[in-house]
Amino acid sequence: MFDALFVMALGAIVLGAALGYAAVRFRVEGDPLVEKIDAILPQTQCGQCGFPGCKPYAQAVAKGEAEINQCPPGGEEGIHKLADLLGREFKPLSAEHGIEKPKAVALIDEQTCIGCTLCIQACPVDAIVGAAKQMHTVIAGQCTGCELCLPPCPVNCISMEPIPESVENWKWKYPVIKLVAAQEVAR
């Protein structure tokens, strides 16, 4: 009887020590939960969630200070993923934070641009190039579509262009299942 207890206790001590050592030896830098949430967020950096970027929102969600349904660019799918990760209930996108839109990129009307550099300062990902009093332009591949450059432009020359469907980004559609009446199947 005591032998068994002794063996079990010894096992517990050895395993506990091993676990403790592993925790110190293999500690992950930073907050892994924030990183995991941030990895799900679309990195549009648009601020629609009410935080100044995706990382701050991730931190707020991790602390339980924000709901999981505040990121419009992430859409329903993003909320599902967050719900799965955090073990929370899925909620539809909160309307006050915006609606899910098709992806678009900013386009500067180069005829109207006065070269004020205000949009450059607004762009969170440095996707706009130009210099003072020179025409500016958007690097489409780097634009996240956050729309933050729209309000500061004094001449309203920036518009959002939806990304068109092309042979390269075209997707196979979900197979449509035809509903068939039972008689037809029997025939």
């Binding site: 941030d38 967020l41 679309p42 990195q43 549009t44 950096q45 970027g53 995706c54 969170p124 990902v125 440095d126 996707a127 780097q142 996240t144 980004n169 075209w170 997707k171 196979w172 559609k173 979900y174 197979p175």
Partner: peptide, 27 residues
């Protein structure tokens, strides 16, 4: 085919997001 192209599209989105995160942090 449907599943493969959805996965490809997500892969592309993910790459773009990673790039955006890097650029944002650099900024």
């Amino acid at each position: 085919r449907f599943a493969k192209s959805e996965i490809w599209a997500r892969e592309v989105d993910k790459e773009a997001a990673d790039q955006a995160r890097e650029r944002y942090e650099f900024r």
